[in-house]
Design a protein around this nucleic acid. Structure first.
Lengths: 207, 207, 207, 207
DNA sequence: TATGAATGAGTTTTCATTCAT
DNA sequence: AATGAATGAAAACTCATTCAT
């Protein structure tokens, strides 16, 4: 019924429909029949492109994971700098990239956030691995700057977990409640809060 | 099969089994037959104590929500104080209570965290309301101390979201990965990080 | 709806219904819905007793294979004897047992005969193994009597294959076409034909 | 994709692919997609040459049935002869033709053998009719020689069924297990065994 | 002739819930 | 209170066949 170009369309239609439905009803409550209805194709068509409902989820997850991993892996010396402003500027770039990624892929991001604990070990683990990678990358970058005149932390791992937790959870608050968040402002304030948490003063007890 | 005293036992067995199974497989993938098998009772027995699978989940959720709400509602003037140490001490008490609550109810906490986005509106909303209450309570307490010599924030809501996000997400990292976290140390460092994020210096740009 | 005794009934009902339907429509064309309709139980009930349609077939097959293997393994010195009559009497007992087995389990026998080439390797192989065992047992018993004054054959394996082929295929002719075959007569004539095929005269060319 | 000459090729490719797949997986478990994959043509191409999956099976069956019927119908006075050797020679020609037919069309023969009990009445019946024709032809030829000095049988039908059963079943043993059977030897020994079974001596009780 | 994406009716399978004992 | 076999509605999934290109 469609040309080769159509095939790509159908696949994309199905993925978009799946994202919409998963987002709206959750993975488990979404029926394959919901997806094909939203994509306006027949039931069987779904199985031309995906082995199962799990399979389409995995494809969606893999795509977002790829985007996410890119940002994580591209991060370099987040906390380096010979002045507070330089550090802040470095960190801001990274945080802004992440905020942008989440807000440009709201549905996917939310979907994966909530579904990450629900799936097969294979998926659950790769997703958790990514989260752990995020923490670990942050920890390493902190440790590279253990001697910084501006930073203070105990074992780096703990502070990295705080940072990543703050980031990944609070973003949902803004994404779910504010339809159009101001990426620039949010990134700046998140950067400020995080650096405050890591600053010499806070650790030294002088608040 | 059981004495009169056994009735309470059976109900508790079912609830514990349900927590275990929901925690292990997620709500949707857990079958009533999994729960009764874990509780070592017959299939029909389940329905003597709960109206449905949803019902037992709601009971579990309600219990944790009650404990959680208690801590939230008990919080009073978290950020008040005439010295940095006094503020820190106040905040520490609250954070320690929460950390303790989570670590004493690991499975429930994790379960509700992951399922919070999954359920029928009735539950989803009450749970999200609690989360929003948490943020709102934090916001109000921040605003009460807008003139504090030690604190600095813009609209309070944003900082409250950071704080709650940091708390609720990073705890999972510690709970899932570290079998025995040191509540005292973790609370202290979380307090320090949060106060750093809210401190005058960080906001003023001096890091 | 039924007592424990009922459980056995239900299982037996399902097996009988399955045998009837497989026999009537063939394994592949039989739907689980045909079986449950014939057994007068609900669709889901089937899955309380069997994992799948394949599973119930395997149970049926295993039962018949057990009966069949018993007869095969019980055979002893079929071709021994110091007179033609003695040999004939020995062989007759065995053949009569087999004819009886088939005619008492017509549907199962026919079912397995036709379906034996259709199933998973595991089943296909065990079934073929039984057939090969039948041939091999016959071959061994022939070879034990290679020096018999009354028997003549070249490599025994070939004659064993003839004998088993004659038996297993021609029985279907009688079972399918004659509703009540005379077990006694058929066994006697089959014995006579087989012994004729193995007799000295036939091999020596004197017919 | 193919030249005019290619059309014949495509049809032949499809038939060969179908024989291979039916032989390997059975008719029911073979999907049209298996056949077209094996034939290396597109899904739709199949329907240019055959009306349905059943149709291609029927074509295959018809071809083998034609070959088979030729041999059956060509048989003439199999058991006639004024000496044992003459009878044996006559019978040998016929049996050798059949053995050759089977061994030259192994897959088709095996396929039809196993599927003969599976199909819609139209095919099942025509195939079974052929089998019954085989038996009936044999019976008639036996009866034509009821007065033979060399043959002995009771009702001819029974002996015919033995003979045909022996032939059609034991051949599978040799075809499936021995990759290269010796047609000449097998035919000779089958002839000898059959004639032994029909000989005066065996029937008279002298073995 | 050839293609292969699309179809949808027809199956298998699952599992929360009921109810007779 | 407890049991566990039975239920059947609701899904997931298959695959022969069609048809626009």
């Amino acid at each position: 019924m469609q040309t080769e170009a159509g095939a790509k369309d159908t696949r994309a239609q199905l993925i978009n429909a799946a994202i919409d439905m998963f987002h709206e009803k959750g993975f488990q409550k979404t029926r394959v029949s919901d997806i094909v209805a939203a994509a306006r194709v027949a039931q069987g068509t779904f199985y031309l492109y995906f082995k199962s409902k799990d399979d389409v989820f995995l494809h969606i997850a893999a795509e977002f994971k790829g985007l996410f991993a890119e940002v994580i892996e591209g991060a370099d010396n987040l906390f380096a700098g010979t002045s507070a402003d330089e550090i802040r500027a470095n960190l801001l770039v990274f945080i802004r990239d992440l905020v942008r990624l989440y807000s440009e892929n709201k549905k996917m991001a939310k979907l994966l956030f909530y579904e990450s604990g629900q799936h097969d070990c294979s998926f659950r683990n790769t997703w958790q691995d990514l989260y752990l990678d995020f923490i670990d990358m942050t920890r390493r970058q902190l440790e590279q700057n253990r001697d910084s005149a501006f930073l203070s932390f105990e074992d780096a791992e703990t502070e990295a977990a705080f940072l990543v937790g703050l980031f990944s959870r609070s973003l949902f608050y803004f994404i779910e409640l504010k339809n159009d968040i101001d990426i620039e402002t949010l990134s700046r304030r998140m950067t400020a809060f995080v650096l405050g948490g890591l600053s010499k003063q806070s650790a030294s007890g002088g608040i």
